[in-house]
Simulated scan of single mutants.
Amino acid sequence: MGSSPDEIQRLQIDDRVRRLRFSFAKLPVQEALDRYRNSLKRAGQSNIIRYAYYVQIDPREEAPPIRKAVPALGRRLWAERPEGTVTLAALSILGTLSRLGPIPATRLAAEERLQPQSLTRLVGNLERVGLVERQRNIVDRRALRIGLTEKGRTALIEDLNARQRWLEKAMATVLTDEERAGLTTAAQSMLKLAFHAKDLAE
C-alpha cells in the first residue's frame, strides 16, 4: 500500500531538514543557526509548522522528551511571529537589553554567548534601524554602553505579544487544566536550567 500525501510531505520536510543540518554542520554555531532559520523561513511558514508538528517523541530514548519538545514548540512560536520582524538572534539581544538595561558590549556578548565580531554585526544592524543605541557611561564618559531605544522596546513588545496571544489560545484549546498547570510548573524548572551559571561539563 502506497504512502499517503501527508506522509510523503512529512518525509520530504524531514529530508530537507536533515540536509540543512548536514550542510551547516561545519559552520560556526551562530552562523549555522542563522542560516538554518533563514532556510526554514524561506521554505514557508506552513512547512515550519508541519515539521514542528511531526517531531515525534520516542519514550524508549534515553534523552528526556524535553530535548525535542522545547525546540518543537520554539519553532512553532517562531512561525507565529509577525511578518518582517528582526531575526531571532537580534530579538534575543533586544530581550536581554530590556531585562538588564544598558550594558557594555562585553557583558552583552557574554549574556548572548556570542563572539565579539558576531555581536558587532548584529548590534550594527539593530542600530541602523533605530532599535538600539550606544550610550555614554555617566561615571566614565569614555565607556560606551548599548541600550534599547523606545522603537526597540516597542518592536520587542509587539513580537512577544503576538506569540503570547497564540500560546494562550493554543493552551486554552488543546490542553486540559491539569496539563496547563503542569506546563507552568515545568516552565519554571526549564528557566532554572537555562540560567544555570555553572558549567555542568566540568
Rank of each mutant, 00 (worst) to 15 (best):
R76T: 15
R76G: 09
R76D: 05
A79T: 06
E80M: 15
R81M: 06
R81P: 01
P82W: 02
P82N: 08
P82I: 03
G84E: 00
G84M: 03
V86K: 01
L88W: 08
L88V: 13
A89C: 06
A89L: 13
A90E: 15
S92W: 04
S92P: 02
I93T: 07
L94T: 00
L94N: 05
L94C: 04
G95A: 00
G95F: 02
T96H: 12
L97V: 10
S98L: 04
S98V: 02
R99K: 12
R99N: 09
L100V: 13
G101I: 04
P102L: 08
P102A: 07
A105M: 11
T106R: 00
T106Q: 01
R107Y: 14
A109N: 07
E112R: 14
R113F: 07
L114K: 08
L114Y: 11
Q115I: 08
P116K: 02
P116H: 03
P116V: 01
L119P: 07
L119G: 07
L119V: 05
R121A: 12
R121I: 09
L122R: 10
L122D: 06
V123H: 11
G124E: 01
G124W: 03
N125C: 00
N125Q: 09
L126I: 10
L126H: 11
E127V: 15
V129G: 01
V129T: 14
G130W: 04
G130H: 05
L131Y: 13
L131E: 04
L131F: 14
L131H: 08
V132S: 14
R134K: 15
R134T: 10
R134W: 11
Q135Y: 04
Q135V: 12
Q135K: 12
Q135G: 00
R136E: 15
N137T: 07
I138L: 13
V139G: 03
D140I: 06
D140N: 10
D140C: 04
D140K: 05
R141L: 14
R141P: 04
R142E: 10
R142T: 10
A143M: 09
A143W: 02
R145S: 11
I146H: 06
G147C: 10
G147P: 10
E150D: 11
E150G: 05
K151Y: 01
K151T: 04
G152H: 01
G152R: 03
R153N: 05
R153T: 03
T154E: 12
A155Q: 05
A155I: 01
L156S: 01
E158H: 03
E158S: 03
E158L: 06
D159Q: 06
A162I: 02
A162K: 04
R163M: 07
R163H: 02
Q164L: 09
Q164F: 04
Q164N: 07
R165T: 14
L167T: 13
L167N: 08
E168Q: 13
A170H: 09
A170I: 10
A170C: 07
A172D: 08
